[in-house]
Design a protein around this nucleic acid. Structure first.
Lengths: 225, 225
DNA sequence: TCGCGCTTCAAACGTATGTTTCAAACAGAC
DNA sequence: GTCTGTTTGAAACATACGTTTGAAGCGCGA
């Protein structure tokens, strides 16, 4: 058997465990026993636990950023000079995420949850790794968002982008649980695609909200809009 | 010296370290050495590390939920039977958070970051503790949101609430890092209060977006609804 | 068949963690 | 001052972690 078998089994197990428990809370022994692989295999093939974390991210982030690049290329081509609209930009992103070739049916939610963890868990090495390797498509997305929302100040745009990221990462990372809760509550089944279809208008509306910054006089909870 | 001194010093140190590093990544030895207290004091006064985590949350969540209850009471009184508006409800929440008596200037951001961590880090015991102790104001908030958005279907409202929670938890849990990034990028300093002031209009606009599932995806993604 | 990389394996290493122990120090009542 | 219950202190405990070791196993060209 080629090494790829062991390597992939480790990556699969690590991906799933990281997504459901976080990085520090997942030990190499959990990973190797789930992958049915010897403990030392991780350090043999990857070098360290941190390097394994990087490999897990690289495995899905590399194809995703390629998909994203072509989606952005196509979008900009079809716009012929004019900047793409906010809706178009958001759809290009979500479509790339949703249409990514998935290894399992849980693929998209694992994907999202890992991204959320990368942002949330203050793992310095991870942040640095992601910045070094994948800053380009991210910057490009930011540039397109900027062109799509010229009415916003840089500061407003910055924060609203964070809000969008949060709503997306949080919801998608818990999509399985949230879908199940809704099923038990109202009896409606939902797909990840449908969540995305509901998310995009929410984000677009938030992004284009008026009156970004009207701190209300203290003590009075006067409506803003 | 009364015990309260040691207890409070432990709580102060734990709160700060938890907020900036997470729970698993913060050891009791870090806490006790920052608090200038003997290692065994934690287990003596609190019983265990998990119990200490609960105590940290209880110390700020108990006054907060009381503040929140009265804010909601006042809001409902001032509305005399009519349901409160979405903006009013959201502002009542954020104002309660922002106006909480703070122990330090970093109080509010620590508060927010801990809440974000509670949501994000899947610490089973913490989730259970929070559900057991503080579910009531949360349910009440949900009820008010429902009355403030009668135009939404139950399913739309459900997802949009998740989007709101995500944007809030995610942004607030990383508020320090995000503020610092913006500072380095544009040279603008920001307070947590300002973030909240920007967040509320974003959330309200997203919550009230029209045509939840209508926008035709460009690039010929098959329509969903 | 031998020899040589590459890979697996069981075992151990050193370190860090949460927790426990038990004697010493302390504070307040009598 | 002495006794009593509470709090602190230094040290040890058992366990879990990431990592390293060195021998055994394997596949394959010579």
């Amino acid at each position: 058997m080629a090494q790829s078998d062991t390597v992939d089994r480790i990556l699969d197990a690590a991906e799933e465990l990281f997504a459901e428990r976080g990085f520090s809370e997942t030990s190499l022994r959990m990973i190797t026993s789930k992958a049915k692989v010897n403990l030392a295999a991780v350090n043999y093939h990857f070098g360290s636990k941190n390097a394994l974390i990087h490999a897990v991210f690289a495995r899905f982030l590399t194809p995703f950023s390629a998909t994203l690049e072509t989606a952005f290329d196509e979008l900009e081509d079809s716009c012929k000079g004019k900047p793409a609209s906010l809706n178009q930009t958001l759809w290009a992103l979500t479509e790339s995420a949703v249409r990514m070739p998935q290894r399992t049916d849980k693929g998209i939610s694992i994907f999202m949850r890992l991204l959320g963890l990368a942002y949330t868990q203050s793992q310095g090495h991870l942040r640095k790794f992601l910045e070094d390797e994948y800053s380009e498509p991210f910057s490009r997305f930011m540039r397109m968002l900027k062109e799509a929302t010229p009415q916003l100040s840089a500061v407003d745009r910055y924060w609203r982008i964070q809000f969008m990221l949060g709503a997306t990462a949080f919801t998608m990372s818990s999509s399985d649980a949230l879908i199940e809760i809704l099923e038990n509550k109202i009896g409606v089944d939902t797909t990840v695609q449908e969540i995305a279809a509901r998310l995009v208008p929410f984000l677009a509306a938030g992004m284009q909200a008026r009156d970004a910054m009207l701190i209300p006089p203290p003590g009075s909870m006067v409506s803003i809009a």
